[in-house]
Computed example of a mutant assay.
Amino acid sequence: MSAGGLLLIIIAALIIFGPNKLPELGRVVGRTFKEFKDATQGIMEDEPPTNKAESPKPAAMVQESAKVEERRLPE
């Protein structure tokens, strides 16, 4: 996006929303981006590590996965 395109968007926003509503609109957009960033960060922290050599499975997780396999229907 060039400077001309950005200027065109700013002028269109001023015409559509008016100078009094733009600060409020900016705050709402900023809060939305912050909430989105926090939510994606939370999802990234919840993911298990991909390298199995770095963090071995606890015994409880191994037993749980064995129980899941036992419940499968025979093929």
Results as ranks from 00 to 15, higher is better:
G4H: 02
G4P: 00
G4F: 00
G5Q: 13
G5V: 03
L7Q: 03
L7Y: 04
L7N: 03
L8M: 00
I9F: 04
I9L: 11
I10Q: 08
I10H: 05
A12W: 03
A13F: 10
A13P: 05
A13K: 06
L14Q: 09
L14V: 13
L14G: 14
I15Q: 14
I15K: 14
F17E: 09
P19E: 06
P19I: 05
P19L: 07
P19H: 06
P19A: 14
N20P: 01
K21M: 08
K21P: 00
L22G: 05
L22H: 06
P23F: 08
E24F: 10
E24D: 09
E24N: 13
L25T: 04
L25E: 04
L25R: 15
G26S: 10
G26Y: 11
G26C: 13
G26T: 13
G26K: 14
R27T: 10
R27A: 15
R27K: 11
R27Y: 09
R27P: 01
V28A: 15
V28G: 12
V28L: 15
V28N: 08
G30H: 14
G30A: 08
G30P: 02
R31F: 14
T32L: 05
T32V: 12
F33N: 13
F33M: 10
F33Y: 03
F33V: 11
K34L: 15
K34Y: 10
K34I: 07
E35D: 08
E35K: 12
E35F: 12
E35Y: 04
E35C: 02
F36T: 08
F36R: 08
F36I: 07
F36C: 00
F36W: 05
K37M: 05
K37T: 13
K37A: 13
K37R: 11
D38I: 06
A39K: 11
A39C: 03
A39W: 11
A39R: 13
T40N: 14
T40R: 10
Q41E: 14
Q41L: 10
G42K: 09
G42P: 06
G42R: 12
I43S: 06
I43M: 15
I43W: 14
M44S: 12
M44K: 07
M44A: 12
E45I: 07
E45Q: 13
E45L: 10
D46F: 02
D46T: 03
D46W: 02
D46I: 01
D46A: 12
E47S: 04
E47C: 00
E47K: 11
P48L: 11
P48R: 12
P48Y: 00
P48K: 07
P49T: 02
P49K: 08
T50Q: 12
T50S: 04
T50M: 07
K52Y: 04
K52S: 07
A53L: 07
A53R: 09
E54G: 01
E54R: 01
E54K: 09
S55P: 00
K57P: 15
K57M: 12
K57D: 07
K57H: 08
P58V: 04
P58D: 02
P58Y: 05
A59H: 01
A59N: 01
A59K: 02
A59Y: 00
A59G: 02
A60M: 04
A60S: 09
A60K: 05
M61N: 04
M61C: 00
